[in-house]
Design a protein around this nucleic acid. Structure first.
Lengths: 296, 296
DNA sequence: TGAATTTGATGAGTTATATTCATCAACATG
DNA sequence: CATGTTGATGAATATAACTCATCAAATTCA
């Protein structure tokens, strides 16, 4: 029996996500909801409280003073709720939760296929994995650890490199028709799949050559590496992806290297932990397992 | 998009009410839900967290260690949510909330009929009135002020007497058939309506006489004074109720005094405010209005 | 400058969650 | 031992959360 003015959890989540990300559309993506759901939750919350939490400025949402005052409180409440829940689950001694934020491509291509290995040594730990493209904020996000590119390391955290980011160029055998070790000129005659969150990768690849930069940007645009992998397997074009992401498909033969060259971006995948608190037993267990897994 | 382990507000409310009141049945009454709803919410919460928050001992609920650890956190979260909501509503400047806990009979018979008077002088204050039989806990309950019997005043609060509790004996004119000023013996020949939360009132009334105590306890049992009033109006028997509760019905003629006697319990209705904080403008406004209203 | 894209809001419909009614069996009380 | 209380549960109902589709306003880009 909520008081008529008591917000619901989905409403608080929609509000805080909108406030932090700036649009209902981005918030929806973050929450794995539709934009419509977020917009409605926001409107319901405002009706409920009788206060405009955002000012509508040219179809944009601008936090109102009231919304600003409410934001920190709402986030604190959501954080405490998460901590209390995780805490009581740990107390029960039956299951504990390890909350991991990681890049979606890394999760699908690398982490998930190897998770049976972790589960086998830690059957009482329940993993809560959220796929994240944006950097983690350990104060705001209920996350115990993150696996991101090192350059996305937030302040107030410690990063341990686990895998360097080496890019390779891959395509399906059918697209290449048995060819391999293509020259840059050859590659430019093929559609080059674009990764929209990493728009300069092809330019970097062709940097030392005399390739026309505009030709390097032709091709379908996809926003995750794993989608690029899928498109490459389907023969839609040549993809430039981290070797670690492509490795499985290469081993299976659904993709082949289109070039003998590799490109080190200088970046790396890193295990990122928040400073200022002793890692829990679960975190340490996962970290040790991860260290061993990357050596194989 | 709640994580699968994130509790909902109704679940938290059911849990905290059960933990504090001891039974799902009492919790349900407190929350204005059915026992079934509370039982289910509890079960859902425990499933969700994978932890038994209560041990079931001979069909009784006993807080488990995990439940005990969770209780304070859950209550703090609910309290902060309420404060944040009320705070942002005040911020908006459009409406502010005044949260009042009061005896149900007093609310219905006295407060509500007079509220237009308060609303006329304070149209921007929205009242949130919860009917309460049990004493208020200002730390745990999101309540700005309470109107209770003085003997229910909790520690850490200040009580200001507004009305003495004078009991009168009332019945419908049809039941009395024009008689009035009945003797105690006459009364004992009529069904005497019992107020189950105040079971000794009839005994107190007949204390100085030679009435057989067992005959004083015959009659239908009802748990609020306003129900006693309704039953008396319906001719089911004679009720013993505070004069302030019966006054409206007496003025209307639907009830008459069955006896010329009054009985002062020594208790009183009091406005109760929490110590340690300056009363808000809304509380002060309501207090001043209440003082004036009881003088009329 | 115009076409394409993004954005928030909203009607209508669908799905998930909260709640009720009714009932049962275990337990407590006088 | 009869009666009342209690928590749990099947089935049905009510409410909240969410989606699809669409629109108009606003922004972006060539």
């Amino acid at each position: 029996m909520r008081q008529s003015y008591t917000p619901s959890i989905p409403e608080l989540q929609s509000f805080t996500a909108c406030a932090r990300l700036g649009t209902t559309t981005l918030a929806a993506g973050h929450l794995n909801l539709t934009q419509s759901a977020v917009s409605r939750s926001l409107a319901t919350l405002e009706d409920r409280l009788g206060v405009a939490l955002f000012n509508r400025v040219r179809k944009r949402l601008v936090l109102s003073p009231a919304g600003h005052a409410f934001l920190d409180k709402a986030e604190a409440i959501l954080a405490q709720l998460d901590d209390a829940s995780v805490g009581v689950m740990a107390f029960g001694g039956r299951t504990s939760i390890l909350r991991i934020a990681a890049l979606p491509s890394f999760v699908r291509s690398w982490l998930i296929p190897r998770l049976p290995g972790f589960t086998a040594i830690a059957p009482d730990i329940s993993l809560d994995i959220s796929a994240r493209l944006d950097p983690v904020d350990f104060i705001r996000d209920p996350v115990d650890l993150a696996i991101m590119r090192k350059t996305h390391q937030p302040t107030g955290s410690t990063a341990e490199i686990i895998l360097p980011e080496n890019l390779v160029v891959v395509a399906s055998p059918a697209l290449l028709k048995g060819a391999s070790n293509l020259s840059d000129t050859d590659l430019l005659n093929l559609p080059l799949l674009q990764q929209s969150t990493r728009p300069t990768l092809w330019l970097d690849w062709f940097r030392d050559g005399d390739a026309d930069p505009r030709r390097a940007l032709r091709g379908a645009r996809l926003d995750h590496f794993d989608m690029v992998i899928d498109a490459a397997i389907a023969g839609l074009g040549v993809g430039i992806v981290p070797h670690v992401i492509a490795r499985q498909s290469l081993d299976r033969g659904t993709l082949v290297l289109a070039s003998g060259r590799k490109f080190e971006t200088g970046d790396a995948y890193a295990l990122i932990l928040p400073d200022g608190q002793e890692p829990s037993a679960e975190v340490r267990l996962f970290r040790d397992w991860l260290r061993a897994a990357v050596r194989r």
